[in-house]
Simulated assay, not measured.
Amino acid sequence: MTAVGPGAPGTPDVRALTAWSVACGVLAPGVEVRIEPLAGGSSNPTYRVRGGDADLVLRTPPVRGGLPTAHDMDREYRFQSALAGSAVPVAPMVASCADPSVIGVPFYLMGRLDGVVHARAETVRDVPPDVAAAAGRALARTLAALHAVDPLAVGLASYARPEPYPVRQLRRWRRQWAASGADPVPVVDRVMSVLSERLPDAGAERIVHGDYNLANVMYERDRPDRVLAVLDWEMAALGPPAADLGQLLAYWGPAGRLLFAERGGHLPDANPGLPSAGELVAEYAETARRFAGNELNIRHIPFWEAFAVIKLAIVCAGALRRGANPSGVRRARIVSLVTGLADIAQDTLKE
């Protein structure tokens, strides 16, 4: 493979990245650096960077059309750095750059891990049912382990806010919806109004991943039932654990089924060994009791599941901003997806 140089479409300038990495001591002077795009990475472009003995992953925000406050590379880097050495497995952080003049956007580098990510139904189908069952339980246990970490003890005090998490999250996502530029979808506005009327007490705030789901977790290649790293921390914050649990259940239910319909199928439907939503909650609750002696309060989980679904709808609407003049067919498909997710959120609030 040859080095990717300046001007290669969609790929960071290898010379600029190399110069910065050498200056920071990440790479040795004189090494040949190669950059290649990696699959996955959600909405954030992700690349493999190799030079000398270094084998790294580069994370960047999209160059065009990201929603305001989304794709926060510094946030990803700081939360994962804080969790290093904890019971929550994360990739090793290497270096971060907030200066967009280096390669055109802020970015960070982390160590590359050789694991397995179940982001598509076909990979989930290939897992033996008993291993899938264990992987699902590990997914729930890892989330409980995250919520057992004291955010102040690991240096995340600066993310504490005087305003309750539900209030600021609702305001943030209202702004994201307005900024998406999507066609009017009345059901989205109705759901946001109902959520604003039912804001729960946030309670004690812990570390919240913000987009926790099976596709954002890497498993060990030789032990596919063990979590190697939790990925994609761009929405991390301090908030109530129930927000993450609601997010996981949103992906596990009809919202995930709709969202993954065009990606080869719903992940939990692809393997009969994966736990049900109720089994995930039970595994999480048992682990939470074991880690911190906490009893899970399920009263507000429907609120957080509905909130998670409407967030997914707004994220999908944001895809219109990232696309360059999307075709009428693509625009109609995204609007249909946004409306369908909003309908699911509305139904969840009625349960």
Rank of each mutant, 00 (worst) to 15 (best):
G7H: 12
A8I: 11
P9T: 10
G10L: 08
P12N: 06
P12M: 04
D13N: 09
D13R: 03
L17V: 04
T18R: 13
C24V: 02
G25T: 10
S42V: 14
R48E: 12
R50M: 13
G51M: 08
G52Q: 01
D53K: 13
D53Y: 09
A54E: 14
V57W: 11
P61F: 03
A70Y: 00
R75P: 08
R75N: 11
G85E: 08
S86E: 06
S86G: 05
M93F: 05
A95Q: 15
A95N: 08
S96T: 15
A98W: 05
D99R: 02
I103W: 01
L109C: 05
G115Q: 08
V117D: 10
V117T: 14
R120Y: 12
E122V: 12
R125C: 06
A135Y: 06
L139W: 10
A140D: 04
T142C: 11
V149F: 02
P151V: 01
L152Q: 15
A153D: 09
V154I: 13
S158Y: 12
Y159W: 11
R161T: 02
Y165N: 05
R172Y: 01
R174V: 01
D183Q: 14
V185M: 07
R190I: 00
S196P: 01
R206F: 00
V208D: 04
V208K: 06
D211V: 02
Y212C: 08
P224H: 09
L228G: 05
W233L: 05
E234N: 03
A237I: 05
A237M: 15
G239F: 09
P241W: 07
L248D: 04
Y251G: 06
W252N: 01
W252G: 03
P254I: 11
L259R: 14
E262H: 15
L274K: 07
G278E: 13
E279F: 03
V281N: 12
T287L: 14
R289K: 09
F291D: 07
N297A: 11
I298N: 00
I301E: 05
A306E: 03
A313T: 02
I314V: 11
V315E: 01
V315K: 01
G318I: 03
A319H: 15
A319V: 15
G323E: 15
S327R: 06
V329L: 00
A332Y: 00
I344T: 06
A345Y: 02
Q346N: 12
D347T: 13
